[in-house]
Nucleic acid binder design. Structure first.
Lengths: 180, 180
DNA sequence: GTTGCATATGAAACAATGCGCATATAAAGT
DNA sequence: ACTTTATATGCGCATTGTTTCATATGCAAC
């Protein structure tokens, strides 16, 4: 149970449909917790059966009807119980590092290219994070509690991306240094 | 298929049993790619069926027999094909951030405690990484290719842990600042 | 006018991951 | 004597994640 909690937390803000949740997961929350729309719909059915959320169908004239879910009292209680449980650090699953372990038998030029792609990716993502930061959190010292979580998520993103950019540069140097 | 590749890469170094692999995954590789011994044994059976590794049973008198796996030619080819495919950045799945999104309705004191635990965890892990770094990689400028991957893995670990430590401190400040 | 995109939900199949349980022996600690 | 630790391999079930397919509509672009 973990995606379920991400959904419940998201519903704290406001009732949402599966479609809303999927879109939101593509944006803010999705930088550190991702899910496809199929996973979300499936999970919503389960949560609904478990009585943690309540569905309400909204008729729409010109578009398909929406099914908007809201937290039940049980859902809120479940969420707060979960928050009180201790959390463990995630493990990274960094494929690129696995590939680098093949150095010595694999082609260093191909790997250098990979690292270059990753550098561009992290630079791009950092730029987007910093843009959001500048627009929505110019003054992080006086945030209402409801926004602290979002700010801290973004902040972790910024710090991690910066480190990864540094790492990519170092990796490029290492790979360039001793080409077979 | 991803754990399979981590196993194949590990077997590049030398033939190993499931037990060996599990231990190794607890150490070096395991910081960014984790797997339980059950996952490893299961994957070894699959790889064996696919003809990518070859098992050899070694009889031992006083202990259970070991089944040592080595890469086949097909396994090496498969590995090199995989290295040439482009890699995507992993997504983080950071439970703690999901919990922080509940701020405003959740108890900030409990979350501050969680962040404190995480700070201690990352400090500890950083210390271990730096110890390995000092012992095995005092001079990273002249590494044989076969060791570059390990060095870069460790290096990413160091950079990420430092960032996470910084983040934890900031998070503590944010949580302390506005207690309800 | 047809292509593509956004809205909106879902089934079904399959692959990968994780968690708990099971088994067997020897050495070393308490 | 008893417990823990290390060696060594494995099954079964549940959860999670990915891919493909299906349906239905409106709007804008080309």
């Amino acid at each position: 149970m973990a995606l379920s909690h991400a959904i419940l937390v998201s519903l704290l803000d406001r009732p949402q449909s599966g479609y809303d949740l999927a879109k939101r997961f593509d944006q803010t929350v999705g930088y550190f917790w991702n899910a496809s729309h199929q996973q979300i719909y499936r999970e919503l059915h389960k949560l609904s059966e478990a009585g943690l959320v309540r569905p309400a169908e909204l008729t729409q004239a010109d578009r398909p009807n929406r099914i908007v879910y809201s937290l039940t009292e049980g859902g809120e209680a479940h969420l707060h119980d979960w928050v009180d449980e201790p959390t463990t650090a995630p493990n990274v699953k960094e494929e690129l590092l696995v590939k680098l372990f093949a150095l010595g038998t694999a082609d260093p030029a191909a790997l250098a290219q990979e690292v270059g792609r990753r550098l561009a990716f992290h630079q791009d993502r950092l730029a987007r994070y910093e843009a959001v930061m500048a627009e929505y959190y110019p003054d992080p010292d006086s945030l209402p509690p409801r926004k602290q979580g979002h700010y801290l998520g973004l902040r972790m993103g910024v710090l991690l991306e910066r480190s990864l950019i540094d790492w990519c540069r170092e990796a490029e140097a290492v790979l360039a240094q001793a080409p077979r």
